[in-house]
């Protein structure tokens, strides 16, 4: 675990010392803040549900930029050989890097708590819905980050990793659009795979273990795939 923590700390420090991370976070907060204020001024609703829904879509584009360098950078910087020969398992490397990115996104989510606090100043938000929504958003982000780690493991090009990450997350975001038209048996499967469908309950104040298991499975699945891809380099 100490090895994982070491990698996590290194990744987090890399983010903290990189101007791009600040620019990315600032850009995200600007767009999210715009959606938040527009929703609040337009509907006068004392809630952050709309803001969280929009923020999820923005993260489809932000997360792959955050994660694209995680694995691809090791190849480009020539450090992958060192990494692969150290007494650290691939799983530990992947987990450490994932947790580093997750720590950054968790910090971002903490900053986003400003929005419900603003609502509380001028209205009476349902804090149960806020808590459930933020928890669901955090879980959704874990699966986003894992998907980003996976696409980053596929290539040594950061650009390709980023584009692939966006494509993958966007596909998971819209995959249920076709569910209604296709009908059974494919339609329900697509609806179940939708990353947004599982967030709906959270964002209206309902925590369902089924949705938690979905996000955790997705997270584990992508991290596992990333590990398999990296391990395959040893024998390919």
């Amino acid at each position: 675990m100490r090895k994982v923590w070491g990698i996590t700390k290194r990744e987090l420090m890399t983010y903290i010392y990189t101007p791009m991370a600040y620019a990315l976070v600032a850009g995200f907060l600007m767009i999210t803040g715009y959606f938040f204020s527009m929703s609040m001024l337009g509907s006068r609703a004392a809630s952050v549900q709309s803001m969280l829904g929009n923020a999820g879509l923005i993260m489809v584009f932000v997360v792959p930029i955050l994660t694209m360098r995680l694995m691809a950078d090791e190849d480009k910087g020539g450090t992958s050989e060192i990494l692969f020969t150290t007494p650290v398992s691939m799983g530990q490397v992947v987990l450490g890097k994932f947790l580093g990115a997750l720590a950054l996104v968790t910090g971002l989510l903490a900053i986003m708590l400003v929005f419900p606090l603003v609502v509380d100043q001028f209205g009476n938000p349902d804090w149960g819905i806020v808590a459930s929504g933020y928890f669901g958003f955090w879980l959704m982000m874990t699966s986003f980050l894992a998907a980003g780690v996976f696409t980053s493991s596929l290539t040594d090009s950061q650009l390709v990793a980023g584009v692939a990450g966006v494509a993958l997350l966007l596909l998971l975001w819209v995959i249920d659009w076709a569910a209604g038209s296709l009908g059974p048996p494919v339609g329900p499967i697509l609806a179940e795979l939708s990353i947004t469908n599982h967030f709906v309950d959270f964002n209206r104040g309902v925590i369902d273990t089924k949705n938690m298991v979905f996000y955790l499975s997705l997270t584990f699945g992508f991290l596992f795939l990333a590990t398999r891809v990296l391990e395959s380099r040893r024998w390919r």
Partner: peptide, 26 residues
């Protein structure tokens, strides 16, 4: 569950939410 905002407070929410937070991060 509604928010009650004066025009000034509305502007504060807009500029604060859109510009102040990102500015602090930058």
């Amino acid at each position: 569950r509604q928010v009650f905002l004066s025009p000034d407070q509305g502007r504060l929410v807009f500029y604060g939410g859109t510009l102040a937070l990102p500015f602090v991060v930058l």
